[in-house]
Design a binder for these strands. Structure first.
Lengths: 122, 122, 122, 122
DNA sequence: GTGGTCTAGACCACC
DNA sequence: GTGGTCTAGACCACA
């Protein structure tokens, strides 16, 4: 896994799990990787993963069965979407729109940039 | 001034100055508020403003005349726009697009959100 | 059976047995559910029940006949009451009283809450 | 400070702050001890205090001013009372009432025990 | 095996 | 100076 310097690693791990749920890689009832295993996989201290899982549990996206591990909760997909969307609409978008306006970028231009972005990956 | 928790205060001050320049409130040759005055106005430690002005000077948007204060540089407007645009296209947009795709938000929806945002302020 | 997150499961199983004895559901000489059966009933790892029965044996509330299972001991009722009461007066009550005082809850209010609790179940 | 083995230290630190607020030792606008100072005072690792303060911030009882420290929030007293009361009524009381009933302790008896507790300290 | 907690110590950005 | 994050490693209770 590759880290972004400007965001705490434990939050990036949260994002990873949320995205796995949104993509359907993880489904309700599935067992999440154990703290130790995920920590090993992403080469991070187990404590860091504990923190990520703690946040996800608090959001109702994961739940813990003592001694067994963490599992994907009921409606995790909807909750994950809400979680992500809330963050996006409340903290990312206003800034984006403000900047767009300030720079005089039109929605058409933005659309274009989006298509460029789309064509970039594949 | 109201602070956003997710961004360093000194960067938010930078943003404020940049925006004032892009809006034309501050023009080439104008004297920027003194460190002290701006610090007082936004209720912040003067050191913080020093840091903001330092960054703006480094970007060639402000220049310092010793004993007199900071002034808006030649072509500050263009430089400010470049500074902002670079940051926006390189670090903000990719993330935005990725999230849009993940959440299944269409450009139409985004357009709608933009109009909501527009109608919010005035 | 429904678990309380703040108490170890094996202790909640102990509570269950103690309560069955105090209510008279289990009497001296009765055979307690086998480890396996109880474990299946409450959906728990048999090891966990073993631990609960171990504690109850240690308290003299159950005894084990090898090959036959666990049985309710002589005077189990009195022992169970003592066990429960000791725990209650020594560890639970002081904390309760301290909190009551801190929150300014009067004994009248507590009485009210008790009646609410009573009316809740049936 | 003296620790209770059955409760996480970071939660006992939370309790300490909450109680200080309820007793009026800490009032809205006051600065809480810095993480390092409180850690030194209660002889605990700073990380542990960070965790306690984090929880209190999440509950809206403390707030953080970057670079300056933690402060007691507006209405901290009410919030602290709610926080404590909720925990008490939802997780402590039901258990207490259930046990009282099981042991056949009447509210009169409980009252008596309370008076004994009151006379104990001074 | 699982997660939960704590320590010691480090580095960082920020004020 | 402040808090925020991360690591390394330990110990514990629990299943």
């Amino acid at each position: 896994m590759t880290w972004n310097d400007h965001k705490a690693i434990y939050l990036q791990i949260v994002d990873r799990v949320v995205e796995d749920i949104l993509r359907g890689t993880l489904k309700t009832g599935d067992r999440a990787l154990s703290v130790r295993d995920l920590a090993a996989e992403v080469q991070v201290n187990p404590n860091t993963v504990v923190r990520s899982y703690g946040l996800l549990e608090q959001e109702g996206i994961l739940y813990n069965q003592r001694g067994l591990g963490f599992f994907i909760a009921e409606n995790a997909s909807a909750k994950a979407r809400d979680f992500k969307k809330k963050e996006f609409i409340e903290s990312t978008l206003p800034d984006v729109f403000k900047t767009i306006k300030l720079l005089g970028i039109s929605m058409e231009e933005l659309n274009l940039l989006y298509q460029q972005f789309e064509n970039l990956k594949p």
